[in-house]
């Protein structure tokens, strides 16, 4: 049986992990390679690395970091952050990434989704969607949720799949950072509207939140950052508790 995936997300700036990550067992938790190996050994099903470096110059170092990660870890990983062309995606995939994630670039240039999917296959193409519920409507936002667009979540999701997205990473801006749980209602609706796997993101605060997003939200995978980085939830404990609720999990 296909299992639900648990995906720690690492933000990378200038080649280092950000957010005050604290782990006793790590020599250097700011080192993405070391942190990735740690999560992989702990039972992460996949990893996501988001490059939040501000300049194109610093972004170039990301490709060499991706190469280093690919050498060290034996589970799949997705990279994203500032990818706007097939060439940039190719550089990261050739460096060893399994998938690329695009967000704002997909909204600004939807044809990019098709170009990527034609070049590498839809299984390589994750479209990340940040949306905020405003007066009952889920509106797609750009620039980490700062800039609203005229797109509605469910329409946009359908469109990106039609264009060639193999997976959708949906972040609810209403839930992100709240630790009050994932946006399960919207996730459930997404799952019935599109026929690709959905990664839930934004709102993880407890083990039950993960269980809920699988059981109520119908998510195929759940992504979280701070609960893992601050050791509030450990992967082995999380996965065991999920399995005890009859959720298909790889232990």
């Amino acid at each position: 049986m296909l299992t639900k995936r648990i995906i720690p997300c690492l933000d990378i700036k200038d080649g280092r992990t950000v957010k005050g990550i604290k782990f006793k067992n790590l020599i250097d938790a700011g080192d993405p390679v070391e942190l990735a190996s740690y999560y992989s050994a702990q039972g992460a099903d996949e990893l996501v690395f988001l490059d939040i470096s501000a300049t194109a110059e610093k972004r170039k170092t990301f490709a060499s970091l991706v190469n280093e990660i690919a050498q060290k870890i034996n589970i799949p990983f997705t990279v994203g952050g500032g990818i706007t062309s097939v060439e940039e995606a190719r550089r990261l995939l050739l460096a060893g990434a399994d998938k690329v994630s695009i967000n704002s670039a997909a909204v600004r240039n939807p044809a990019l989704i098709t170009e990527l999917s034609k070049a590498f296959g839809s299984q390589c193409v994750v479209v990340a969607i940040d949306a905020k519920q405003i007066e009952g409507e889920w509106i797609v936002h750009l620039v980490g949720g700062k800039e609203p667009t005229s797109l509605r979540l469910f329409d946009w999701a359908k469109q990106v799949v039609k264009l060639g997205a193999g997976e959708i990473l949906f972040t609810s801006m209403n839930n992100d950072g709240t630790k009050q749980g994932f946006a399960n209602e919207a996730l459930q609706k997404l799952s019935t509207r599109v026929n690709v796997p959905i990664i839930a993101s934004g709102g993880a605060g407890s083990i039950q939140h993960f269980a809920d997003t699988f059981l109520l939200g119908g998510a195929d995978a759940a992504l979280a950052a701070s609960v893992f980085h601050f050791n509030e939830i450990t992967l082995p404990n999380l996965k065991q508790k999920l399995q005890s609720q009859a959720i298909a999990i790889r232990l």
Binding site: M1, L2, T3, K4, R5, D45, I75, P76, S122, Q123, G166, E167, N195, V196, P197, D220, A221, R250
Partner: peptide, 29 residues
């Protein structure tokens, strides 16, 4: 089904060289 099939799924294998020393029903990606 949702397509692509992405993630870890368990396999049932026949005994043979490729799966030597592996416990039953392992998860692979």
């Amino acid at each position: 089904e949702k397509v692509p099939h992405i993630g870890w799924n368990d396999i049932k294998f026949k005994d043979g060289e490729l799966f030597r020393g592996i416990e039953e029903n392992p998860y692979v990606y």
